[in-house]
Design a protein around this nucleic acid. Structure first.
Lengths: 191, 191
DNA sequence: GACGATACGGAGCTATCGTTCCGCTTGTCA
DNA sequence: TGACAAGCGGAACGATAGCTCCGTATCGTC
C-alpha cells in the first residue's frame, strides 16, 4: 500500500510530498482526472520533476489519493460500528450519506474510480477490502434488527455507490445526488 | 439533431455513412470511447478522411450514436405506453430492464454518457427530452394504479439509470448489473 | 461517353501530455 | 564549515490521437 520509503525523507522532501498531495487533491477535485501533472506541480509550488520523484506515475499519485479517500470511508464505517445504541439500519444509512457527501466534494476520486486504470484501484485495494468487511458487519446488524432487506449483500453497496458517484458527474441539468442516496437507502430498507 | 444533409447524398456516400456508423458502434462498444478514429475508419473499410467528411469531429460521431440509442429507448417507451393491459408498474419496470440490457451491450454509449462532452449530449437532447416525457407518463400511470411510490418524479429515472450504466464499467470484480436494476426497481415500487 | 461536382484515401501536421534527464541547490552530519 | 548525498526544477523528448489537405477516383447527368 502506498509508497512508504525505507529511509526517513529529508525535511524538505517530506514537506513537498505533503504539498503535492494537497495540490493534487485540489486540482483533481476541481478539474477532474484529466488535469495535467504540470498543473499539480504548479499548484504545489514545485517543479514537475519533483512530483515524479515522489510519485513515479500519474496513476500512482491518483492511487494514493483514492487510497486516502477509502481510508476515510473505513474510518467512518469504524465509527458506525462502534455505535451500538443507534438503530442499525439508520446507522448504516448515515454511513452511506456521509460517504456520498465526501464523494460529492471530490471529483478526482470520482473520476479515478470510473476512468482510472486498474493500477489506481490497486493502491486502494486493501482499504477497499476492509471497507467491504465493515459494510458486511453493518448489514448483518441491520438485518438482525429486521430493518434491512434480508437479501442485501455487502457487494450490493459498492455497486450502488459507484453508480451514485458516477451520476454526480453526468453533465445533465439538475441532478440531485441527495435524492439519489435517499432512493438507494430506501431500496435497501426492509418493507 | 444529427447531420441531415440538404441535398441527397451520392450513392457511395450514403453507403459509406452507414458503414461508418456500423463500424463505430462495433468499435466503441468493444474498446470504449477511447478507440481511435483510425480504428473506426479501418473497420468501415474507409479512409479517415471519409469519416471526417461525414462527421466533423469525433464528438459528432459519438453524438450520433448516442442519439440513435436514445431513439431506441424512446421506441421502447412508446411500445410500453401502448400497452394498456399490463400492470402499469410492471410495464415501467420492463422498460427499465430493457434499456439496461441495451446499455449493457453498448460500452460506447455508456462511455459517451459519462465521459463525453456536452457536445455529445447536444445531439441526443431531443430524444432525451422525448424520453423524459414518456417516462413521466409511465410514472403517472403506475402512481395512479398505486403500485409506484407517489413521490417518484421523472427526473429520478435518468439519474438512477446513468448510475447503473456507469457502474457497469467499474473494473471491480463481479459487478452484477441485473441485480442493480432490480434494486432500483424496488426502490421505486410502492410499499 | 464526357464533364463537372462530389466523395475518397491516407500521409502527415499539430497539439497535448506523461515522462525523463541532468545541471544546480539544499539539507544533514561530522 | 565543508563535503556529499538527497532532492529540486523545468526544458525537452516521444508517443499518441484528432484532424487537415489535396491529388485521385467515382457518381450522376446531358
Amino acid at each position: 500500500m502506498s509508497t512508504v520509503p525505507d529511509r526517513p525523507l529529508r525535511a524538505d522532501a517530506r514537506r513537498n510530498r505533503e504539498r503535492i498531495l494537497a495540490a493534487a487533491r485540489e486540482v483533481f477535485a476541481e478539474t477532474g482526472i484529466e488535469s495535467q501533472m504540470d498543473a499539480v506541480a504548479e499548484r504545489a509550488g514545485v517543479g514537475v520533476g519533483t512530483v515524479y520523484r515522489h510519485f513515479p506515475t500519474k496513476d500512482a499519485l491518483l492511487g494514493e489519493l483514492v487510497a486516502e479517500r477509502f481510508a476515510e470511508f473505513c474510518a467512518v464505517a469504524e465509527r458506525a460500528l462502534a455505535d451500538v445504541d443507534g438503530e442499525p439500519f439508520e446507522v448504516f444509512a448515515a454511513v452511506l450519506r456521509d460517504n456520498a457527501e465526501r464523494m460529492a466534494g471530490d471529483a478526482g476520486t470520482r473520476h479515478a474510480m470510473t476512468n482510472g486504470g486498474d493500477s489506481v484501484w490497486l493502491a486502494a485495494a486493501p482499504a477497499r477490502d476492509l471497507l467491504l468487511a465493515q459494510t458486511a458487519q453493518l448489514i448483518v446488524r441491520a438485518q438482525a434488527a429486521g430493518t434491512m432487506r434480508q437479501d442485501v449483500s455487502a457487494a450490493d453497496v459498492p455497486q450502488l455507490m459507484c453508480g451514485l458517484s458516477a451520476a454526480m458527474d453526468v453533465s445533465g441539468l439538475g441532478f440531485d445526488w441527495r435524492r439519489h442516496v435517499e432512493l438507494l437507502i430506501d431500496a435497501l430498507r426492509a418493507r
